[in-house]
Amino acid sequence: MVYLTIAVFCSVAVSVLLKILRQKNIDIRQTIVAGYPVACLLTWLLLKPDISGMSTLGSAWGVIGALGIMLPAVFIILGRTIEAVGMVATDAAQRLSLIIPIVASFLLFGELITGTHILGLALGFLALAALVYRPQHAEISQQAKHTPIWLFGVWAGYGIIDILFKQVAKQGTAFPLTLFVSFGLAGLLLLIYLLVTRVRWQGNAIAAGLLLGTLNMGNIYAYVRAHQVMHDSPSIVFTGMNVGVIAVATLIGVGIFKEHLNRINVLGLLLAICCVALLFLA
């Protein structure tokens, strides 16, 4: 349970860091680009990718290229969403992204759908609707009015990334090498973009990137290790990770950052937990 606890902590800590950075008007793009060299280094040290396998990537380069674009883009969207709607709804939407690869498995890869799948998917979409709900009479900032768009970006972005990683795995590419190359490409593309746009570099943004890269890789490594150590109990790892992130993010978001949740939002969180449990049991 130690690795699972670390994975949950690192995942929520990423959201906490991004929320703080947005509050301090720090350029998250710079933080993200500074985090990728750290993530690459930790991937090299912890997962030991086989660089000699680069020549065998072949057609997987298309998928890796898509990951190189999607990874930093989703991080940027994540930061904007946390600012607009808070940690609680954002992390719940991120966890509900598991709906997308499940639907893709039915529509694109010919897997059979069951009644439990249908119920779980229905609960997931209801949860998303409840999470974006805002009372009509409440005063809403201009940015908060775009809450459904931002939450959809987080949900769809992480779901697409999950599908991309699954496709690479099916092509026989080793996960550590895929992760290493994707991180490197993502950092390079974002760096080129920032240089072309002549961004004004911020020292505190770069420093925060060191922490972001460590937390990002810590989340991935701890989650993989949790599956390895608890290989006989994958349900505990899967459900514990998703439900744990939603629960801890809720405690921190409401307890520390004083995020407001209406009754419909709370119902959305409960539906999200039920969705995660049902989709795994299916």
Rank of each mutant, 00 (worst) to 15 (best):
G213C: 13
V229C: 08
L177P: 02
I160G: 03
H231V: 14
G187F: 09
N219R: 11
I160M: 11
L211N: 00
N204P: 00
K166S: 01
R225A: 14
S182R: 04
G153F: 08
D162L: 00
Y223T: 05
L189H: 08
D232C: 02
I220A: 02
A226N: 10
N216F: 09
L190N: 01
Y223F: 15
G209Q: 05
L189N: 06
G157H: 00
L211V: 14
A186R: 04
Y193V: 14
I206Y: 10
T178M: 15
H227Q: 14
A226K: 08
A208S: 11
Y221C: 04
I220K: 03
G218V: 14
I220F: 12
T214H: 00
R200D: 08
A174H: 07
L211Q: 01
A186N: 07
L215Y: 01
A169T: 11
I192L: 15
Y223D: 06
L210E: 01
T173I: 15
L190S: 03
L179D: 07
G157I: 03
A226R: 07
A222E: 08
A222G: 05
A169P: 02
G218S: 12
F165D: 01
V229K: 08
A205W: 07
L215R: 08
A156Y: 11
V224E: 15
A186F: 10
Y221N: 10
W155A: 09
R198S: 13
L191F: 12
I163G: 00
Y221F: 15
Q171E: 12
F183G: 07
H231W: 10
F180Q: 06
G184P: 13
A208Q: 04
L195G: 03
L179Q: 08
V224P: 01
G159V: 03
M217R: 05
V199L: 11
F175C: 05
M217I: 14
V168F: 00
L194Y: 00
L164V: 06
T178V: 12
A205E: 00
W201T: 03
T178Y: 03
M230V: 05
L210G: 04
A208V: 03
A174V: 06
Q171R: 10
H231F: 15
Y193N: 12
I220C: 02
H231D: 15
V229E: 10
S182W: 03
G159N: 08
L185I: 14
G218R: 09
I161Q: 11
G203L: 11
Y158W: 13
F183W: 06
G172W: 02
L164N: 07
L194H: 01
A169W: 03
G187L: 08
R225N: 10
V196S: 10
Q167D: 12
G157M: 10
G209W: 05
Q167T: 06
I192P: 02
L185N: 04
